[in-house]
Structures are given as C-alpha cells and as structure tokens.
Design a protein around this nucleic acid. Structure first.
Lengths: 245, 245
DNA sequence: GACTTTTAAATGTCAGACAAATGAAAAGTG
DNA sequence: CACTTTTCATTTGTCTGACATTTAAAAGTC
C-alpha cells in the first residue's frame, strides 16, 4: 500500500483509494484490523488528521467500522444487506432527482425489473409474503389515508412482492428502483378513484402470485405501470395548463 | 441544520447526516455552495477538522465536490451517471464477495434482470449496439484470448445488450448486476469447447435482438444462464473432489 | 486597454495536545 | 485460589493554532 507523492489529488483521497483497493482485492479481509491511525500516518508519511479524513471516507461507504479504546481501531466491515440497501437507495434517489430523469424512464426501468421478479416470486413466495401483500392492500383501501401513507404502503407491497422471489441479491437491486421512485410518486395526488384502480391492480397481482401464475403477475404489473403513467401524465397536464395561460 | 449534543454518535457523522438530509430533501440544491469550513464549524459549534471529516464523508458518496482557492468551497455535486455506476459496482461487488452469496443466487438475479432488458432492447437497439455485440462475439472467438480478456469481452457484450434498451436508469441498475459477477466468473476456466458454446449463445442473442424478437432473446438468455451455471458447477465439482480425498 | 502583480479567501496539511472509551493487566480481598 | 476492584496503556474523538497551496479578484503598471 503506497501513494504517489506526485499526484495532485488530495492525500486523504489517495490513501482512501489505496486502502479500498486492498479491501476489494482481498489484501485485507473481513474483520481484519487496520493499523492504528498513528501507524498509518507513519506508513504513508502524513499527519494523523489526513489519515482520519481517509478513514472517514471509507466509513461513509461502510467499508470500515471503528471502535474506540484499547484493542480498538478500524476494522474491515462486512457489508451487510441493510447497509447495501441504504446506499443503493441513497444513490438511486439522488441519481433520479438530480438528473432530470423523466417519470416515464424511471417508471419503465422499475416495472421492467419488477416483472423480472414476478415469475420467481410466483414460484417461491411464502405465506408470509402473501399475507404482507394482502395486509398492505387492505391498508390502502382504508379511507382517510394520507397520500404519504398510501405511498409508503405501496412501497411495502412491492417490497413484499420482490422479496417473495427469495433472492436477496434481487431484493437489494430492486430496493433502489422501488424506493427511489417514491419522491417522484409523491407529486401524484391520489383521488379516491385512482386509489381504487390501484388497489384493484394490486389485488390482481396478489391473486396471480397466490395462484403461482407468473405470466398473470407480469401482465398485472404492466397494467399497473400503464395506470401509474396515466396518473402522472394527468398531473403534469393539470400543472402545465395554468402556467401556459 | 442542527445536531444533537446528547447523541453518542461521532460529531462528524452527525454533521454529515445533517447536510446529507438537507441535500436529499432539497434544502440544498445542485451546484449550491455550502458555507466555508470555518462557517460550518461556527454553526455546528465544532472545530474545523471535525467539519472536514464530515465533508470527506459526503465527498466519498459524491454528494459534494470541493474546490480550492478564492471563491472555492464545497458545492453540492450533481451525481453523474458514471459516478453512480461506479458506486453501484463497488457496493454490489463487495456485497457479493463478503456475504458468501452463492453463484446460483447471483446468477439468477443477474439473468432475471437482464431478461427484463431484453424485450426493450429488442425493440429499440440501434445499429451501434448491434455492431458492438457482433464485435465482441468476434473477439470472443479469437484463439489465444486469455480468460480475463474473454470475461471482459463478455461484460462488454452484455453491457451493449442492456444499453440497447435505451434507458439509462436500467443501464445503471444493471451495471452492478453484470460487473459484480465478474469476480465470481473469474473462477471459471473457459475451455475451447465452453467458449464455443457461449459464443453460439451470444450469437443467438444478437440474432434475436437484430430481428427484434424479445421472446427469443429472453429464451437465449435463459439458455446462457443454464450453460453458465453448468460450467460453474463443473468447476466446483472438480475442486471439491481433490479436497474430499 | 492589456498585462502583471498583489492580495484575500478558501481548502489542504501539519503538529501537538487533551478527552473519552475500553480492554487487559495489576492489585486488592475474601 | 477465585473473585472483584483498581489502575493503566492504547486507541479513537476532538480541539487549537499554524502554515502551505491554490485561485479569483483587486490593484497596480505600462
């Protein structure tokens, strides 16, 4: 592990990259303790604050965790699914919100991936997943639900659908696609009528999953995609009109 | 933007979270300049090194960029697709390598998602995407290609397939799934015979995409998934035998 | 006006210090 | 000896103050 003194990049960035490479290539293994900050400072011939900045960069990516006290230090962190989920969601959400990604593009990507889970979920879903889906559908039918709560329940429903596939890697990938859509979905005001349409489509999906009919689930998802797009477009149209006049 | 003095979390972590929230909720917009380090230190009532550690955490997630000199400072960064790709790949790769994800699970997730792109790609692929796919197939048929080069070409082929869908969000999501598999694929030694089988399946896929037949592309991908799994299992079996004796 | 020099502001880096947490060894106690 | 308490060294967390470097704008010069 060495750094290039001629590079014009920040020392802390170089050190972070150097350690990250060591982790990703297997030079440092999970739960292994890194040298102490003082030792790292010696090794890279920099000051302790610079080393600390590098370590904080790695901590921000969940690559290391630190512990104070005797026999403490920085340890290579086993990237857990929840940590990976959370990073995935942060990155996806920012990517959508900062790059003027159209509702259509985001929606298409999301439902394409969700359909990919549908057949697996139909084959493998447990009673638990089904129960969650039914419960969320019930919640969505309750009158007086705020739009935020409706959206949150929508996310929970789709998560159960995805988790039903029983593939944690797939769940991780979908987490970004589903959750990152939520800020975009929040622009939609759900009328009683549109909620009813969505609840009906959710019921179709749940029924298809229950009867282990992947094709039907896929078709219902496509119908839901169409419905969602139409809803969004009506909102955009309603917004555009007052401005245009 | 405030922090909780009673929390037992690191101050720099709290400050980073506070600023991150401001960015994600729209309180700070793209290209907006954050207060200087000295001003932030004043605001949060901490020292400048602590503020700097917080800013490095944000920089590690590409949420901000910094510029030196007069009128420099930290600016909210527009998360570009390449930055998002790279983070996605890092996270996915670590998730797979650190959690003993089975080859089967990773493979299933990847091909499920790739099939999701296939029909879109069949409908929209440009001549460019097709040309890339054909070129990579040609490269894969060259004798004397190292296993690493073969794998790299394999990734390039699949990227072209995915990019053919013309949906950058989908490409971003798939980047993780496809690239993170590469370390797992590297355990496979490709014999001349297995390479030929893969090249043939790649040709099937390219043909299906060219004739805009999404179902055929999907089917060819499934065949490729089966072939890949069989290859991996034969490698595992060959490894297990000497150890078991 | 065009060019050069100076200046001020900001980040990057360093050195040294103290606080706080924590596990392990040492000391004390029955 | 077994157990508890105390002490202590190690390590991270934080602060202060300083200097170096970069950079754009202001001031000066022809």
């Amino acid at each position: 592990m060495q750094i290039d003194p001629n590079s014009n990049a920040d020392l802390s960035a170089q050190i972070a990259t150097s350690i990250r490479d060591a982790i990703m290539t297997g030079g440092l293994i999970v739960d292994e303790r890194l040298p102490s900050e003082a030792e790292l400072a010696d090794h890279f011939a920099v000051s302790r604050p610079t080393v600390r900045e590098a370590l904080k960069r790695l901590a921000a990516q969940s690559l290391i965790r630190t512990q104070r006290g005797a026999s403490g230090g920085a340890f290579v962190n086993r990237l857990s699914y929840p940590e990976a989920y959370s990073q995935q969601i942060t990155t996806s959400t920012l990517l959508l919100s900062m790059n003027a990604v159209s509702f259509e593009t985001a929606c298409e990507a999301r439902y394409a991936m969700e359909r990919a889970c549908a057949s697996l979920s139909a084959a493998r879903r447990t009673a638990d997943h089904l129960a969650t889906m039914r419960a969320e559908i019930f919640r969505q039918g309750q009158p007086g639900l705020t739009d935020e709560a409706f959206c949150a329940s929508d996310v929970a429903f789709h998560r159960a659908l995805v988790d039903g596939a029983g593939n944690p890697v797939l769940s991780y990938q979908l987490a970004g696609a589903v959750e990152a859509m939520q800020p975009l979905m929040n622009i939609i005001t759900f009328t009683a009528r549109s909620r009813e349409a969505i609840v009906n489509l959710h019921t179709d999906i749940a029924n298809a999953i229950e009867s282990q009919d992947g094709a039907a689930a896929s078709a219902a998802l496509t119908a839901l995609e169409t419905e969602t797009l139409a809803l969004a477009q009506s909102v955009f149209a309603a917004r555009a009109k007052p401005l245009g006049q």
